[in-house]
Amino acid sequence: MDKKVLIKLSDLKKDYVNEDVATEVLKGINLEISQGEFVAIMGPSGSGKSTLMHIMGFLDKLTLGKYFFKGKDVSNLSDDELAEIRNEEVGFIFQAFNLLQRTSVYDNVRLPLTYSSKKFDKNKVITSIKAVGLYHRLNNLSNQLSGGEKQRVAIARSLVNDPSIIFADEPTGNLDSKSGKQIMEILQDLNDHGKTIILVTHEKYTAEHARRILKIVDGEIIDDYQVKERLIARLEKDLTK
């Protein structure tokens, strides 16, 4: 790959200290992710895959090692600096959708811009909602949506600040297979248009929609390969119907 390196981790370690007992969750991770990649991180629960995502997504701090983001050392940022970088560079999609309850689609998607220092632009919100095919649901409340629609709102929310990278943590985990397929289709589509996506999953089937798979066991990367024949999610029906 000759594309620009987005994330570079060198010998990254993470310990959790609980009642004076330190547990080593990540044991020296070395990793490079370039712009435009679609990486699936796989591993059983407790393997450290979520912790790795949290650190790369600036939600958690590393214990040892270095983290370079867009070439800049971001290993030791303060809480507020992390919040700022999350707001500007990162989009998150969670397994449980995490929408604001009884709040409109529009307001949910708008949320990250509330915390942005940039001038608010309504068009960004509308564009994001159109990108996931939910413009007709603009003023519906979050609790009036189906699971698949909720996750699409979450995707629109992750896109609204035009992030450098999107982290999706088990995005299809709470969905039926049809809705899950739809979500994967949107993610693949976004990736085709140049978005860098990191997908965390424990399902091989879901992971094979990515272009590259990392396997983590016990805090170490045991496998890292390009998917030869990746699965393409395509629904026959139009999204908006």
């Binding site: 809480d79 507020d80 919040a83 999350r86 500007e88 915390y115």
Partner: peptide, 16 residues
């Protein structure tokens, strides 16, 4: 709590 977590994840600072 989850809402607060979400807001923080999306970039809300402590003062927000």
């Amino acid at each position: 709590t989850r809402e607060i977590g979400l807001r923080k994840a999306l970039g809300a600072k402590r003062k927000n």
